[in-house]
Every structure is written in structure tokens, then in C-alpha cells.
Nucleic acid binder design. Structure first.
Lengths: 228, 228
DNA sequence: TGTACATCAGTGAACGCGCGTTCACTGATGTAC
DNA sequence: TGTACATCAGTGAACGCGCGTTCACTGATGTAC
């Protein structure tokens, strides 16, 4: 099993993370075992313990990197949206779903209870991703910081997050396949997600229902004209 | 192990399903094993095979019942909404999330790939639940049947489904806990979900973006006044 | 109404499996003097 | 510049575990005549 030039691996930590990501991509979080990852890294089953303690430690590190990558993607979407706050939110949503479809196994791991351990770095990275979204909502409603957000603003954040999260989950689970038609899932998402996000953002930020809480929605001019 | 009055159990099939549901409720789908369920039913590990073939068979049967229960709940929401099509959709959404929070383990099982086997009854029950939602959208846009639905209508269906699905998943995963404040998750959902759904429905069904495809949202009167 | 017999629904011991983790160990590396 | 030695990062055999499934079996039930 040891056909390395040196007795030591040299970069085992990184190799184990890479092997885990590959396994997640190929077979999902259910297929993860410490032994399989050690096998892929060409190392004995006991070796990972030196770097990650146990299986949960390794998975937690990988999930943490996943959130960092998601944060990066969301920021890119935000930037692409430009000065139009709603367009920026919309592009964040597109990036969220694109990330999940690009890395379905990793995405599912990131939200899997039980396999991850409590970890300060993981929580920090997860929070950073959330903050990009919350920041986008703040820009859209003209609120300075988190302390100034009112319940309706939090509701808008949870609504947007829920929408893209659910969309990603259902798409990964193959639930949209029967509706896809020619072009497959990719075309379906590409054509459907953006306008839907746009419409929802219009409803969320233009109607009194979202801004005031439990009052009913009334006619009101939309705050955005849409950028495409 | 056999302290039953009779050698035969009498209603083992039902007992196994009940034991599985209890296990799902207590510890989630990850904790499910055939042996544990047999143990809870007071029966030998080989007994379930007579009724369900194998572990996937039992889980599939349970998931199937879960979809039937979900369908029932959605219909109740639809009815509660009354003649107002958007209110009916909104109440369906509330029911969807309520179901997931009431039976988190079962809900997660229902959307877990890998643990379920392909099964006609499962698919039929899952489709029935979906059809309640799609039917609600049809009523809202005044379309007769599935064949008459245009892409924008399917987009509305996927948007609503995604929203409540993601909301349920994130709530179950504890992601909303930091935002809950006093009253906990239940109050948070109760106060936040309904108005958000209302606002989103307004955006989805009033704005040209959702109705026409990729055009931007424009100012338009909301189609509903809200019922609370 | 009784009896023979097929079928059904369980038992419980045993199978092989892969898992995470432990253990004493050892080769390589780095550091102090 | 050498040398002793501590520390680090691996090995690989072994541990006990719980799993799903198999197997020959047996007790109970139902049916045909």
C-alpha cells in the first residue's frame, strides 16, 4: 500500500480533503467512509486520525471549505448584479443554485446534521455565506446593518434563502426532471430560475405584506424595472 | 424474544411501519436499521423480510404513506383557503411546512435518494401531492388542465414548491434558530411564513416576469387583497 | 365434523462484511548543542 | 559540521461491533374433502 517515494506523504491533509470531495461528487455523503478516503489517498486507515481526529473532523473541514466556496460564489453574483440591488440579489440566487448543481454531494453534506461536528470555523464560514445574502437584502431595503433589520427584513432573507435552497435540493433530487423537457435540467434552471427570482423579489420588496408583516398585499408600484 | 400470546404476530406489517415511523421521529432516517425496527416490534431480525423483502422495501412503504399524509394536508390547506385561489395556495404552503415540522424524520426520508427503491405506489403518491400544488396554481391562473400549462406556470409551481421545501428543510436543520427570538421556531414560522407567501404569490402572479418568461417585472396591481 | 395437508409467518443461529478506532511500532524530519 | 535525540507522520495488524441477509426449522392457520 505504501509505494510512495518517501515514508511520509507530505501533503496528506490536502490529499484527504481532495479524496473526500471526489467521493462526495461521485457518490454523495452517504458513501463516505474514512477507510475509503484513506484508500483513495493511498494511505493506511489509521493515518487520517493524525490530521482530523476522526471521520466527523474530516467531514467538518470539507464542509467548511464548501461554505467558503459558496460565499465566494454569492459575492460574484452580487457583483454581477451591479448597482441594482434586486438584480444583485437575483444573481446571488442564481449562484446559490449553480453551486449546488455543480457540487451536489458537497452541498448536501453542508446541510447534513449528524455527520458534522460543532466547529467554530464551520459556523463562521456558514455565517459568512448567510451574511452575503442578508447584506444584499439590506441594500435592497436601504438598511445600514443587521441591528436595524426589522422582522419583515428577516422574513425576506429567509424567503430568498428558502427559495434557492429548496430549488437546489429538489433539482438535485431529480424532482424537476419530468418538467425539464429538451435541454435537461441545466436549460430548465437557466431559463426558469432568473425570471422567477425577479418576480418574487418584486413581490417581496414592493408589496406592503412583506414590508409591514401581516397586513394583506396591496397594489403598489414595483421597485425595479428588471435588467434583462 | 417471543413473549407474544401466539407464535404469529398478527399485524406485523403495521407494527413494522409504526416502529419505523417512531424511529424516524426520534432519530431520523440515518438511524434506521432493519434490526432496530425488528427489535422494536419484538420480532426476530429475519421477520420483516416476509412482508417487505428488504430494508429499502420497508422504507419505501413508509415514505409512500408519508406522501399520502402530505397530500391530505395540502388538500386541507387548499380547502381552508376557500374561493380565493391565492389564499388557497398560501395555505397549502403553510401546510407543507407544518407537515415537515411535525414529522421531520419522515419528511427527510421522503426526499432521500438511495434509501428508497423505485416503486410505482411511491411515485403515484408523490405525484398526487405535487398535483395538489399544481392544481392550485392552475386555479390561480385560470388554466384548465396540465396540458394547457405554459412554462411560466410550471415556473410558478417550482417556485412555490421550492420555497416551502427549502423553508422546511432549513427550519428542520436548525438554520432559522438564531433568528427565531422569543416563541421559538413555531412562532417564527407562524408569524413569518404566511405574509411572505402572500407577498411572493403577489409577485409571482401579478408581475409580467412570471407570466411571460424572461421580461423584467413591471408595476402591476396585485391580484389579491390578502385575507388576514 | 374430523382429518390430512399445504401454506403462511414466524424463529434463532449463523454467514461474511466493512466499519471506526486502538495499538505498538518505525521511518523520516527537524532541532539543540 | 556532526551528532544525539525528540517529535512528527506514517504502518499494518488487530479489536469488537452491528449490520443485512441466509438458512433450515417450526408453530399456527386455513382449506379440501
Amino acid at each position: 500500500m505504501n509505494d510512495r517515494p518517501s515514508y511520509h506523504h507530505g501533503a496528506l491533509r490536502e490529499a484527504l480533503i481532495a479524496a473526500t470531495e471526489a467521493l462526495l461528487a461521485e457518490q454523495g455523503p452517504e458513501a463516505f467512509t474514512l477507510r475509503e478516503v484513506a484508500r483513495r489517498a493511498g494511505v493506511s486507515p489509521a493515518a487520517p486520525a493524525h490530521h482530523f481526529g476522526d471521520a466527523a473532523g474530516l467531514l467538518t473541514a470539507v464542509a467548511s471549505l464548501g461554505f467558503a466556496e459558496l460565499t465566494h460564489a454569492l459575492r460574484e453574483g452580487d457583483t454581477r448584479g451591479g448597482a441594482d440591488a434586486l438584480a444583485a440579489l437575483r444573481e446571488q440566487g442564481v449562484e446559490y443554485v449553480a453551486f449546488a448543481l455543480r457540487r451536489p454531494g458537497l452541498f448536501r453534506l453542508m446541510f447534513r446534521q449528524g455527520r458534522l461536528r460543532e466547529d467554530a470555523e464551520l459556523e463562521q464560514h456558514a455565517h459568512a455565506a448567510f451574511e452575503v445574502l442578508a447584506g444584499g437584502v439590506r441594500r435592497a431595503v436601504g438598511v445600514r446593518d443587521a441591528a436595524a433589520m426589522r422582522p419583515a427584513h428577516w422574513q425576506a432573507v429567509t424567503a430568498l434563502w428558502s427559495l434557492v435552497h429548496g430549488y437546489a435540493h429538489l433539482a438535485i433530487a431529480g424532482k424537476f426532471d419530468p418538467m425539464c423537457g429538451p435541454g435537461g435540467l441545466e436549460a430548465f434552471v437557466g431559463q426558469g430560475l432568473r425570471p422567477v427570482l425577479q418576480a418574487i423579489l418584486g413581490g417581496l420588496f414592493a408589496a406592503p405584506a412583506a414590508a409591514r408583516g401581516t397586513r394583506g398585499a396591496r397594489s403598489a408600484p414595483s421597485r425595479t424595472g428588471g435588467t434583462r
